[in-house]
């Protein structure tokens, strides 16, 4: 069984994002970038399925500029087998629909049994690519996974939903998107980082793949959210209760 795991290079989750003064985007200069945390979880899950003897090969894909090579190498150092970089130098975020189309064309070529994606990228927060890819391929989808079992040609997936947990089964080939509690991604060891440098990584482009990635949405502006003004410190429980009661909040 072959697994594809797409990975996105995003602003590190610890960075305090600053909106540019021209209101066209956020400041990415000299900012720490990392693999989208949800994608780390999907790479980890794919590798665990390989270690369990269920998967035979884990292929990671990234779409972005050349720096995304780093993100792919990270995944290879964690234990993925090879990488595909879809180079795009335009410097704008590629919409989930376009990403899904690129991935669908790679799926047609690679014929995996499972594609595991992060449930959302922490930059555009769209939460859409996996579901869109499933639609384009006509596959089943199991989103927001907190447990994945592969058995009898199906993925049995427990999902984090608003009311609690839901378990469904999807026929393979299928799409799974990962939630936070699926696993704890490993750190790559130094020897594995060295080994990863020699693993195969091929490059392609959306043009080579024949995919139209023109955006459907125009971003008119990006603004800072309304700033919340810090209030006051109270000195005691009595003072807190007084403030809450005076304000009519309790």
């Amino acid at each position: 069984m072959k697994i594809l795991a797409p990975v996105k290079r995003v602003i590190d989750y610890n960075v305090k994002v600053k909106v540019k003064t021209n209101r066209k985007g956020v400041d990415l200069e000299n900012v720490k970038m990392s693999m989208n945390p949800f994608d780390e979880i999907s790479v980890e899950e794919a590798i665990r399925l390989k270690e369990a003897g269920i998967a035979t090969e884990v292929v990671v894909i990234s779409i972005g500029d050349k720096k995304s090579t780093e993100t792919i190498r990270n995944a290879l150092a964690m234990g993925a087998d090879r990488g595909i970089l879809v180079v795009d130098d335009q410097g704008v975020d590629i919409e989930p629909l376009a990403v899904a189309k690129i991935l669908a064309s790679i799926v047609a070529d690679e014929q995996p049994d499972l594609v595991i994606l992060g449930k959302q990228a922490i930059d555009n927060d769209m939460n859409a690519t996996g579901q869109m890819l499933a639609a384009l391929l006509g596959w089943g989808q199991a989103t927001f996974a907190s447990e994945v079992k592969i058995e009898n040609g199906e993925a049995v997936v427990t999902r984090e939903v608003d009311g609690g947990l839901q378990t469904i089964s999807v026929k393979l080939p299928a799409i799974v998107t990962t939630d936070l509690r699926l696993n704890e991604p490993r750190y790559a060891s130094l020897p594995n980082i060295m080994k990863a440098k020699k693993k195969p990584l091929v490059e392609t482009t959306s043009v080579d793949l024949g995919v139209d990635i023109d955006p459907r949405l125009s971003v008119i502006s990006i603004e800072e959210p309304a700033e919340r003004v810090a209030g006051m410190k109270v000195g005691s429980v009595s003072e807190l209760i007084e403030k809450l009661q005076d304000g009519g909040f309790v």
Binding site: E95, P96, L97, A100, D125, M126, N127, A128, T129, G130, Q131, M132, L133, A134, A135, L136, Q141, T143, F144, R159, E160, V161, D162, P215, R216, L217
Partner: peptide, 23 residues
Amino acid sequence: ATSTGKNILPRVAALLDVMVISD
């Protein structure tokens, strides 16, 4: 934008070949 809405709408959008606008 509940877990159900987030699960289904992007699939609908891709079936219609349009982008989804989340949240």
